[in-house]
């Protein structure tokens, strides 16, 4: 409506300037109704619940203030989950960024058959995390697993991928990386196709090797994308890892692959500890708020834009 061509309903409202002020808000109402009922209200309710001890059926609520948080930070299992999350997320992010960048470079080489490779590589993105988990669990199954069989037959790696340390975590990381990678590749490919040819040509003329070109020119040019992907990957590993962990290891062995989100699931839906679980979700909220803040704060400043 910016250029003053008001639709006919506005004439009914009389004062055009007034309606111009109100109209945007009216248009936002449907969105806000959805956001408020499904995001803000539950979030606010979680904040409230995090200060209570709640019985499983919600028939008893006792105000405990910040005791739930205190309990969590004294709970060794919760602290272990924090450590696990840190290791799992950082290792996965590093691997997924490195792999997807490399694969994107290869896909960008315009060799015959690239569309087929692209299609094959993008498939995991279309699969739900639970199915991805089932697939990988099947491959590594100690009885019928194809990968497990070959590893033990040819390389003598005869381990139980679900119940042994550290293999359970390795399997979870592999699965998550496989699942998230296509997302990153899409962004990297788009980025690579936007790098001006003349920059690279100039570098070639200056005698730069392809290694130098890749790491000194291409990678820095793509740094905004990398930064964005790191943030997005942190979010997806922290949250969507739930289904994969549930299917592949169920948080085991022990609580070795129990991440914060899996711990939250257990406390909320397996043990019915609503208050504690609400406190955990508040902690996750704070972590995410920090990550998002970093993204908005540094995303605009530090990262090299062309």
């Amino acid at each position: 409506m910016g250029d003053g061509q008001s639709p006919f309903i506005l004439t009914k409202w009389g004062d055009r300037r007034m309606s111009r002020k109100i109209l945007p808000y009216i248009l936002l109402i449907p969105t806000f109704i959805v956001i408020i009922t499904f995001i803000y209200w539950p979030a606010a309710y979680s904040f409230k619940l995090s200060m209570y001890r709640v019985s499983p059926f919600g028939n008893r609520m006792i105000f405990v203030g910040l005791k739930n948080f205190k309990k969590l930070f004294e709970d060794t299992q919760y602290l272990t989950a924090m450590k696990t999350t840190l290791i799992y997320v950082s290792v996965s992010v590093i691997i997924v960024i490195f792999l997807s960048f490399t694969i994107s470079l290869l896909l960008n080489m315009k060799v015959p058959g690239t569309p087929i490779y692209k299609a094959l590589i993008f498939i995991p993105y279309a699969i739900s995390p639970a199915i991805a988990g089932t697939l990988w669990a099947f491959l590594f199954n100690p009885v019928v697993g194809f990968v497990h069989y070959n590893l033990s037959h040819y390389f003598g790696i005869n381990v139980d991928w679900f119940t042994e340390k550290p293999y359970a975590l390795i399997l979870v990381i592999l699965t998550s990386v496989w699942k998230v990678m296509p997302f990153d590749i899409i962004f990297y490919l788009a980025g690579l196709q936007n790098i001006p040819e003349d920059v690279l040509e100039a570098a070639t003329l200056d005698g730069a090797s392809s290694w130098t070109k890749t790491w000194k020119i291409v990678f820095p040019l793509l740094s905004p994308i990398t930064f964005y992907l790191i943030i997005m990957n942190i979010i997806s590993f922290m949250f969507s890892s739930f289904a994969i962990i549930d299917v592949v290891t169920r948080g085991g062995p022990g609580d070795y692959t129990t991440t914060l989100i899996y711990r939250l699931y257990l406390d909320a839906f397996a043990f019915q500890k609503t208050g504690i679980a609400a406190a955990e979700s508040v902690i996750l909220f704070i972590i995410m708020a920090v990550v998002t803040f970093i993204y908005f704060y540094f995303g605009e400043r530090r990262v090299h834009y062309q």
Binding site: G252, G254, Y256
Partner: peptide, 8 residues
């Protein structure tokens, strides 16, 4: 959890 920790 205790059993799995023991087995590991």
């Amino acid at each position: 959890t205790a059993i799995q920790r023991m087995l590991n």
